[in-house]
Design a protein around this nucleic acid. Structure first.
Lengths: 152, 152
DNA sequence: GATCATGCAACAACGCTAGTTGCATGATCA
DNA sequence: TGATCATGCAACTAGCGTTGTTGCATGATC
């Protein structure tokens, strides 16, 4: 079962954007992530709709942070990406009339809801500012990704 | 992102097997799940290797529970299925040298590990006997899936 | 008006899981 | 003993969803 790394990647990008002079183009971000500019635009569109970033056209255009890192939580970005499925396991629905299936699913669902609530609560407590500070504190070295070339 | 319903389905099947006279063939189980007998064998193979079920060939053969429901937990079956990924979100690994990516991933991983621990702990506490009792208590009616035809 | 960059839609490619087929093995029954 | 039933296993096929790609339109800057 393949996993969705958009959340991790977008968080990474956003912190870099904060340190970045001017706008970052989709092309630049795509190169940093080893992916395609159109995919970047598709993904960033959700963040733009939620007011986390702005996009500007023309010379010197690209993507710009629209809020301070301190106002952006992991949960906010998760939701801006469409709040995708957190779990890769799901409930069977082949025999909805079967009381056994219902009991099995109810038990699984309860455990999953509890775990999900805890995960989302954690996500809601962490801001990108905290992550940025954490990274500079622990390693005291500039980041070196392609987006951050001017820092290295 | 599609989800893996094997755990839910196998739990369902196991409870039915407990109420079932004699062995249940892969074909019967497949019909009940709306799937294929080979897929059933593939999935049940893991449970057999862990001693949860036995398989017998020839006339009257099929699958038989090898342990009482009280000794089978959701966690046990989850592990017997190969302990597949629980989360559909994952960590990016494009820039392993980047301290920002490291900080982002560390934060996500911590939250996910915590949620996973809670989920697995829950799974470890629930036995199939509890599910079987729950289903008969709450509805006080026989289950009606194809595997359970003789009860309905 | 030339260039740069996003926006959007349609299409192609890829990877993964489920599903399928075919044959071998072994147990039961007549 | 031979026919039948059922699992075991391996290789192949199909379907689905996501990512990647292409082409063109829009708008901003130089």
């Amino acid at each position: 079962m393949r996993h969705d790394t958009r959340l991790s990647r977008m968080l990474h990008v956003l912190v870099h954007m904060d340190r970045h002079e001017g706008a970052a183009t989709s092309e630049t971000i795509a190169a940093m992530l080893g992916t395609n500019a159109v995919v970047v635009r598709r993904t960033m569109a959700g963040l733009r709709d939620q007011g986390y970033v702005r996009s500007e056209k023309g010379h010197g255009g690209g993507w710009i942070l629209a809020r301070p890192l301190g106002e952006i939580t992991l949960l906010g970005i998760h939701n801006a990406l469409g709040a995708p499925q957190l779990f890769s396991i799901g409930l069977a629905g082949d025999n909805p009339n079967c009381v056994i299936e219902q009991a099995v699913n109810a038990s699984l669902a309860e455990a999953m809801h509890e775990a999900e609530a805890i995960l989302l609560a954690k996500f809601g407590q962490v801001t990108l500012a905290a992550l940025a500070e954490e990274s500079s504190k622990r390693w005291a070295k500039p980041a070196h990704c392609s987006l951050a070339m001017e820092h290295s």
